[in-house]
């Protein structure tokens, strides 16, 4: 069987976390390669709908952290289908993160089945000056920022990893070799996040190519607030992304 479970909000994972991280994630290794756990868990993440602290978190770093789990975070409808079919056919346990705000996004999706390999990033936009690595819904924030930055003559390259475990570091490093500058946009909290992970990987592996300090654009180190006026400040937006990009090219404005 290839079960697909839909677990609603990722915030609810707490009540079944053991089954995921101590059981499913570990069977294969602990049993000396004898087990397969070809399961997909779908879950919703992200802020932006006034759902407050227990229904708005972006907890994918926690799952990315755990060896044995694969983590998929599509940014658009086409990828969602291809990645889902790949996740189902994959023999490892996959946590499939769906940003709840993205459900309203429309896009062309072929009728027939197709797959997008897990662990293959996509270059969403090409550019020479700065690389933005953006996760899930943050890809669209990066695209909006890139459009406004282009008006100012800053050409941004956007990398959408599509899966955070495995992570396509090759594509990220190649992009950095070309641009020498990095901004990571990650909707989760900043500590031990995808942003801090990717910044650290790039710093270790591409140090000689870096022309400026990598920047992270994330939610603050707080739970998601309820009130709209605060939640709108919580989620990274195109302006914050553009600001971070300007920092990397030495045109930083105080935020």
């Amino acid at each position: 069987m290839r079960p697909i479970a839909e677990l609603m909000f990722v915030d609810f994972m707490g009540v079944c976390f053991d089954q995921i991280y101590n059981q499913a994630a570990k069977f294969r290794y602990m049993f000396g390669g004898k087990a397969v756990t070809p399961m997909v868990i779908r879950t919703m993440y992200g802020a932006g709908i006034r759902a407050a602290a227990q229904h708005s978190q972006a907890l994918y770093p926690i799952f990315t952290h755990i060896p044995g789990l694969k983590v998929v975070i599509p940014s658009n409808p086409y990828d969602a289908k291809g990645l889902m079919i790949a996740a189902i056919r994959d023999d490892d346990p996959v946590i499939f993160f769906e940003n709840k705000v993205l459900y309203a996004v429309e896009g062309d999706v072929p009728e027939e089945p197709y797959t997008i390999p897990l662990g293959e990033a996509e270059i969403v936009r090409e550019g020479e000056d700065v690389t933005i690595v953006a996760i899930g819904r943050m890809v669209s924030m990066a695209e909006q920022a890139a459009a406004s930055l282009a008006d100012d003559g800053i050409e941004v390259e956007i990398v959408d990893p599509r899966t955070t475990s495995p992570l396509d570091t090759d594509t990220i490093y190649e992009s950095i070799e070309n641009t020498g500058r990095l901004v990571v946009v990650d909707e989760s909290n900043p500590r031990c996040s995808l942003a801090s992970d990717i910044v650290s990987l790039v710093t270790q592996n591409c140090f000689e190519h870096l022309k400026s300090a990598p920047q992270m654009v994330t939610a603050p180190h707080t739970p998601p607030p309820f009130s709209g006026s605060l939640e709108d400040l919580y989620v990274p937006d195109p302006e914050k992304v553009a600001n971070a990009v300007r920092q990397t090219v030495g045109q930083g404005v105080a935020s």
């Binding site: 915030d11 006034r50 602290a53 227990q54 229904h55 309820f226």
Partner: peptide
């Protein structure tokens, strides 16, 4: 304004909170 409908609480009244987690 930080909790909303699902997190109404008043510890002084012994009300430990509505809860978003079933």
């Amino acid at each position: 304004g930080k909790g909303g409908s699902m997190h109404i609480a008043d510890l002084d009244k012994g009300m430990l909170g509505a809860n978003g987690i079933v």
